[in-house]
Design a binder for these strands. Structure first.
Lengths: 239, 239
DNA sequence: CGCGGTGTTGAGACCTGTCAAGACGTGTGG
DNA sequence: CCACACGTCTTGACAGGTCTCAACACCGCG
């Protein structure tokens, strides 16, 4: 059940068998969540962290006028709210974008880990810091990249993250987001995302239909998206 | 020396005297850094984390074409790179915006803390998670707020953060950033920031001259900036 | 078969960017 | 003390990327 999460950690550092066992022991039962259901609401008390076992989840912030910004996409193997362990309450909603399966870890168990497993604690800390690194890269996109580059960039990011999770092929992956959801990730409107996708298709960089993305020209897409994977921290080293 | 950082923690949770002593013991000597000097370069190996004792610092990401996005402003009492403890290398530069004083904490000492002081570890983890919360709010600004709201919002945020650090008065603070630096925080151009500042002045919300910001109408500024301090986690509770 | 959500297209508006020039202020050197 | 240089702030005219509004097409599903 926690294999995708372990794989994600093990790209960045070794995880001992004791640590692996401690993680396994901390995780609760598998549970289904239907699409569009909020998993966590901004401001509510959170007493457990949620690991995503399948499906796609978003961290969304809403403005009073109804505008929405998605601040991160989570996929299989991501904790959707590991940061709630220290924050105790979230500044954003966590929403299932598709049907999902999740499992939760009570915060007391995480607290036990911080007492007994300092290195594992650092790996969990690392996971939240990697989220922040993704936040920063998205800020760069929204502040300084054109619409075309933003869309190209997020497709490149997700290819790598989904490959690590083990649910992407060499050249593509299932991409279940609507154009409106994608627009909410990128700080654009769905109309403009639509036109931007057409431009990427016209340039023969991608193919996207029936919720399946195929990347036809990965180097080209990376160039257009000014994509450099450094911020994903793909190097294994002691943490 | 670490008082502003302690004050920041103690807004969110209690810090025991042993924990305080452990922190004090971990911090090295005070050192000066001149304005515009990079403190850390993206990609380089980092073996210590830097605590800001005075001055203003930015986390900046650059694009090849020279465009720059500042992803966070750090002020007195902030660690400018506590996340480097687990990341080991940064995805952004850390730049002194003004003359600064800093002190560093070797990563080995932080590692010792994770072994011996689980609760203090969680507080340090919390500090990095609060950075991420600020990242998310800035994303919301860049993705969904107008230029006017963005400028108003950042002024509101900094008022609270500087008050906690103990370097702001009731209604204002020294604001040393140039309009270009501010533009790089907000994903705007300096020309547009200039016009936006004029609009805020015309509406009698702020006064800004000689690097001093006075907030003339805090409720009005918060309204324009759609500012809600929830994301700053100002509530004290066990972490 | 009709419905609701999603994707597509067009025309026009608007916010923000670009380019360029000049004003202002402060520090430096003659 | 003046002259000058440099960074910053300000202003204007214009360009352009993205948004808004609206209509229509498409499609899976009940």
């Amino acid at each position: 059940m926690i294999e995708p999460f372990l794989r994600k950690l093990r790209v960045r550092d070794d995880v001992s068998s004791q640590e692996e066992a401690a993680l396994r022991a901390a995780v609760g039962e598998r549970r289904a969540v239907p699409a569009h259901r909020p998993i966590i609401r901004a401001g509510e008390n959170v007493r457990e962290s949620t690991l995503l076992l399948s499906g796609w989840v978003a961290r969304a912030k809403d403005l009073e006028n109804g505008e929405r910004q998605i601040t991160e996409i989570n996929v299989v193997g991501d904790f959707v709210d590991l940061h709630s362990f220290t924050l105790k309450t979230l500044d954003h909603d966590v929403i299932a974008l598709t049907n999902c399966e999740i499992a939760t870890v009570p915060h007391e168990k995480l607290e036990d880990i911080t007492v007994t497993f300092p290195h594992l604690t650092r790996l969990l800390w690392l996971a939240t810091n990697m989220d922040a690194a993704i936040h920063r890269e998205w800020m760069l996109s929204m502040g300084r990249r054109t619409a075309l580059a933003r869309v190209a960039h997020i497709f490149c990011e997700l290819l790598i993250r989904l490959q690590i999770a083990g649910v992407a092929s060499e050249d593509g992956y299932d991409f279940p987001l609507t154009q409106l959801q994608l627009a909410d990730c990128l700080g654009l409107t769905s109309v403009h995302v639509n036109r931007t996708l057409q431009e990427l298709r016209k340039r023969e960089l991608i193919e996207l239909r029936n919720r399946r993305l195929r990347i036809l020209d990965a180097p080209g897409l990376q160039r257009v998206g000014q994509f450099d994977p450094g911020y994903l921290y793909l190097k294994k080293q002691p943490r």
